[in-house]
Simulated assay, not measured.
Amino acid sequence: MYKGVVLAVPVTVPYRRFADQDAHWFLAMALRELLQATGLKKDRIDGLAVSSFTMAPDTAVGLTQHLGLSPRWLEHVPMGGASAIVAIRRAARAVQAGDADIVACIAGDTNNPAAFRGILRDFSRFSREAVYPLGAGGPNASFALMTEAYMRAFDTTARDFGHVCVQQRLNAQTDPGALIRKPLSLDDYLTARPIADPLRMFDCVMPCAGAEGFLVLREEEAHRLRLPFVRILSTIERHNSFPDDPVQLRGGWIMDRDRLWNAASLGPEDMDLIQTYDDYPVICALQVEDLGFCPKGEGARFLASRDLTAGGRLPMNTSGGQLSYGQAGAAGGHLGLNEALRQLTGQSRSAAVPDARYALVSGFGMINYDRGICTAATVLEAAA
């Protein structure tokens, strides 16, 4: 499907809780890290894909002037947690078509109280007109609605969701870049202060500042530059799936998963690790269900019955995921992708998954009142 096109050079601009620098600075640092890691000059980057929530009033085209780039291919990907995979799909086709040779996919955001309030207020027309004015601004209320509906529909307990948070904290303790590394027990999770019933503190992602980046390029170019790389076996994306569902208990992955696995000639049982978008535990359950790892409604219990650490039965979010690493705005959609690239190329900064060859990365983005409207997934293979 994407023969001859590979992913390489995962870079992370260190996360911090708050920052005075703007999103442009973090995105520029991601580009600088890519150039330093490859030895490339800036004019060799002839394609650019950008995702950010705090770059306004600029979009990707405005950023090119700030960065001093003159790309012949440009993509703005305002899809939050699905952005990395959507960027891969667009960039890989551009490289195949000869519209670009080396595409930098970067995502990042700043974080300060004023900027975060602005995001909550103006995230979408739904937010501005139907959510924020009623005092329910932000994702906590939306995911509380989804979590409660899921628990009632499938007889799921808080302990099931708590296992995800505890296991990912164990993963974070092995990654020096994770912002939250303090040990977390299931009792700590269950007795944490309530945020939006039934969500507790450790169910909720912590906003922060930071950036992520990677390159999409031809395999022969990666060899020439002596870059470890990963092959793209398949990808899917879907937007505004199941709009008539009263509350989101399924996502677009379920509509396209057969296409994803058939194109890769693999199945869920072949994955050595998975990186699921994880701003709240319930969305991890939806992803493993809808991507075929277990039957519908069994996702939370499926995850609760498994060791999710790097040496476990189903390594998941091996850097700690957003729930422990932090959510640097739109870079949250790139965090799992970069962790998969590191694991498959032997560059992981967290505990390594032994003999990792295949990885699934899935994304979820753009939550409005009751649902996220962007879903995506990719299957990746380590180079032989």
Results as ranks from 00 to 15, higher is better:
Leu190Ala: 03
Met206Arg: 07
Ala263Gln: 15
Ala196Glu: 06
Thr276Phe: 15
Gln248Lys: 04
Arg231Pro: 14
Asp188Ile: 01
Leu260Gly: 04
Ile236Arg: 05
Asp244Arg: 05
Ser265Met: 12
Pro268Met: 14
Leu190Cys: 03
Asp197Ser: 06
Ile195Thr: 00
Leu217Asp: 12
Thr235Trp: 06
Ile254Val: 07
Asp272Asn: 13
Asp272Arg: 14
Met206Ser: 02
Gly210Ser: 10
Trp253Pro: 00
Arg257Lys: 15
Asp258Val: 15
Asp258Gly: 11
Asp188Trp: 03
Phe214His: 08
Asp258Tyr: 14
Gly267Asp: 14
Ile274Trp: 13
Gly251Trp: 08
Phe202Cys: 01
Val247His: 00
Pro194Lys: 04
Tyr277Met: 10
Leu217Ser: 10
Met271Asp: 01
Trp261Glu: 11
Cys208Ile: 05
Pro198Val: 09
Leu225Cys: 06
Arg231Ile: 03
Pro268Leu: 15
Ala209Trp: 10
Leu225Gly: 01
Asp188Gly: 01
Met201Thr: 01
Leu190Arg: 02
Ile195Phe: 00
Val230Arg: 13
Pro228Trp: 11
Val230Asn: 12
Ser234Phe: 09
Arg193Ala: 05
Pro246Thr: 01
Asp188Leu: 04
Tyr277His: 13
Ser234Arg: 12
Glu221Ala: 08
Glu212Asp: 05
Trp261Cys: 08
Asp197Trp: 02
Ser265Pro: 03
Pro268Ile: 14
Ala192Met: 06
Phe229Val: 06
Arg200Asp: 00
Asp197Tyr: 03
Asp244His: 04
Arg250Cys: 01
Glu221Asn: 04
Cys208Gly: 03
Pro198Glu: 02
Arg218Glu: 13
Met271Thr: 03
Arg257Cys: 07
Leu215Met: 11
Leu266Asn: 06
Ser265Cys: 11
Met201Phe: 07
Gly267Trp: 14
Gly252Leu: 11
Trp261Tyr: 13
Asp203Ser: 02
Cys208Ser: 05
Met201Trp: 01
Gly251Lys: 10
Leu225Trp: 12
Arg193Leu: 06
Pro207Tyr: 08
Gly267Pro: 14
Asn262Glu: 15
Asp197Met: 02
Ile254Arg: 15
Arg200Ile: 02
Arg193Gly: 01
Asp258Lys: 15
Asp258Asn: 13
Gly251Ala: 13
Pro228Leu: 10
Glu212His: 07
Asp278Trp: 09
Ala263Pro: 09
Phe202Ile: 00
Val216Gln: 04
Leu227Arg: 00
Gly251Ser: 13
Pro268Gln: 11
Pro268Lys: 08
Gly252Cys: 09
Ala263Val: 13
Leu190Asp: 04
His239Tyr: 13
Gln275Leu: 15
Pro243Phe: 06
Asp203Glu: 00
Ala263Lys: 14
Val205Arg: 04
Glu237Pro: 07
Phe242Pro: 04
Ile195Arg: 02
Glu212Ile: 06
Arg250Pro: 00
Phe202Ser: 00
Arg238Val: 11
Arg193Ser: 01
Leu215Ala: 05
Trp253Gln: 06
Leu217His: 06
Asp270His: 12
Phe214Gln: 05
Ile236Cys: 02
Pro228Asp: 05
Glu269Phe: 08
Phe214Trp: 14
Arg231Glu: 15
Glu221Thr: 11
Pro198Ala: 04
Phe214Tyr: 14
Met271Asn: 05
Ser241His: 11
Leu225Thr: 02
Leu225Met: 07
Glu220Gln: 15
Asn240Met: 11
Phe229His: 13
Glu219Lys: 10
Thr191Phe: 09
Phe242Leu: 04
Tyr189Phe: 15
Gln248Ser: 06
Trp253Ile: 06
Glu219Pro: 15
Met271His: 07
Val216Asp: 03
Ser265His: 14
